[in-house]
């Protein structure tokens, strides 16, 4: 098995503490002759206050990497550290606690509970953390107002538009103030206007609330909102760009092309 290591990501400009560090992540899916190497040695660091986009074509390993970074899937090889905790030897229940304490998720198809109202969908994220009662309810209302759904608290997902549902999902992800927010194709099911609204929201969460937001996407409309873009292809990180000061969007440089040029 040959393992191609990508170039180490550039250091953040500011002196910020790393909240997530993945080193040499390899993931094999399937068994025997049908084994597929979905990730071939990925290194990635996330710092607070940054919206990072993980972009790549279908089958490049984006979602697999997101699952591993979210402690939902375990890597075949490599190390993952969340908020200073090495996840290597944690049990599924300990990983659940780590997710609960430090990670918020936003899913492509929202994954809201259809039988719960917008407010209840957000409250359940606190409830699993043992936070109940008036304070929890107040906090959920506050977050829903922050995402612009102050008038839709009692509405059920079936009565909300796609954009509104995704904003409920965003509220659910951030209500417990996690260090890291992981979003899987957050704009894929939305039209341009709603997609932009959700990306603006994610950027605000990163910048104003000093959280580390990683969004997996193949939607080019999301680029203007990114502080950093990480490109993945065939299970390897092939490029990483940062938004230069004064530019609206990161200057995309394809590291693969750069490597080919050097060769």
């Amino acid at each position: 098995m040959t393992k191609k290591k990508t170039e180490a990501p550039a250091a953040p400009e500011k002196n910020q503490e790393t909240v997530l560090a993945a080193t040499g992540i390899v993931k094999e899916l399937g068994r025997g002759a049908g084994t597929v190497m979905a990730l071939k040695g990925v290194d990635l660091r996330l710092v607070p206050g940054e919206l990072t986009l993980l972009m790549g074509p279908s089958g490049s390993g984006k979602t697999t990497l997101l699952s591993i970074l979210g402690c939902i899937m375990s890597p075949t090889e490599g190390e993952l550290s969340i908020a200073g905790t090495n996840t290597a030897k944690l049990s599924p229940d300990e990983l659940a606690v780590l997710r609960r304490d430090h990670i918020g998720f936003i899913f492509q198809s929202y994954n809201l509970f259809p039988t719960l109202s917008a407010l209840e969908n957000v409250r359940i994220a606190l409830d699993v953390r043992g936070q109940k009662g008036y304070e929890a309810a107040r906090r959920c209302e506050e977050v829903l107002r922050e995402v612009g759904l102050g008038q839709r608290l009692r509405n059920f997902p079936g009565n909300l538009s796609g954009g509104e549902q995704q904003r409920v999902a965003v509220a659910r992800a951030i209500v417990s103030s996690p260090l890291i927010v992981l979003a899987d194709e957050p704009t894929a099911a939305l039209d341009g206007e709603n997609g932009n609204a959700v990306m603006e929201l994610l950027a605000r969460i990163a910048h104003e609330q000093d959280r580390s937001v990683l969004a997996v996407t193949h939607d080019p409309r999301t680029l203007p909102f990114a502080d950093r873009v990480v490109r993945i292809e065939d299970g390897l990180i092939v490029g990483e760009e940062r938004r230069p000061e004064g530019l609206d969007a990161p200057e995309i440089t394809d590291l693969t092309k750069r490597r080919k040029a050097h060769a």
Partner: peptide, 15 residues
Amino acid sequence: NEFATLRALGSSSGY
């Protein structure tokens, strides 16, 4: 899928 979402949100099996 809702139970899987709960698990992803970090709920314990007991919950």
